[in-house]
């Protein structure tokens, strides 16, 4: 039995962690306040929930742009860019791993390193989240917000009856993503909470090639 203490490597910068948790908190609170705006729950009261939802929405948007600036200027954007070469093969391996390999204790098909933190499926997911779902929510949310201020735009842009359902659809997608995202973090590291811990501390154990998550769980 190899009992060597694994090396700790830095996988997330301070800003990346701040960015992640602010986005996470924003999305989570947007979902909660959104539920209240929709009349499903009563926590803050309708007026406060609307205000909170709007403020959080702008926090999310502003932070997304700051993040975009950071990822572009630092080059970290490359983490999210899927490389065409071998993408399909690696994605297939990754999918097979989730479907069967993970139950047999196989190694991750794509080794996670500080330079390549995301596997092909994650990259594809984030492309969809950051380029489709987030803009979708931003646009539909801004439209809803704008129609509250400039109601006469209804004639040219459609009313809330158009934009709110689209926004709600995006919210459901975000909620489903959150569940899947949190769960899949438990598959990313040597231990179930390794990835989450890494997003808190910025460090995680270096790969030991000793097996999959369940080996130490």
């Amino acid at each position: 039995m190899n009992a060597a203490v694994p090396a700790r490597v830095r996988v997330y910068t301070g800003y990346e962690r701040l960015w992640h948790w602010v986005q996470a908190a924003s999305v989570l609170l947007l979902l909660v306040t959104g539920l209240e705006v929709a009349g499903v729950v009563r926590v803050l009261g309708f007026a406060r929930a609307v205000t909170a939802h709007e403020v959080l929405g702008f926090v999310l948007i502003g932070h997304a742009f700051l993040g975009l600036f950071y990822f572009l200027s630092s080059g970290a954007i490359r983490q999210y860019v899927a490389e065409p070469r071998d993408f399909a093969t690696l994605a297939w391996r990754q999918a097979r791993y989730y479907v069967s390999g993970i139950f047999r204790g196989e190694r991750h098909p794509v080794e996670r390193t500080p330079e390549h933190r995301l596997n092909p499926l994650q990259k594809a997911t984030y492309v969809m989240i950051l380029n489709v779902l987030l803009p979708w929510q931003v646009v539909t949310g801004l439209a809803t917000w704008g129609l509250e201020r400039w109601p006469r735009l209804e004639a040219t842009t459609g009313g809330l009856a158009l934009w709110v359902p689209l926004h709600v659809a995006g919210a459901w997608a975000f909620a489903a993503f959150l569940v899947g995202h949190v769960y899949l973090t438990t598959t990313a590291g040597p231990r179930p909470l390794s990835a989450i811990r890494a997003m808190v501390t910025g460090h995680e154990d270096a790969p030991t090639h000793a097996g999959a998550t369940e080996a130490s769980s």
Partner: peptide
């Protein structure tokens, strides 16, 4: 054509979304 936040809900969207979740 009026949507009253807090009262009106997109039933179809909610059903599909809840199913997905």
């Amino acid at each position: 054509g009026r949507w009253v936040l807090g009262r009106d809900r997109p039933v179809l969207v909610d059903r599909v979304g809840a199913l997905a979740l």
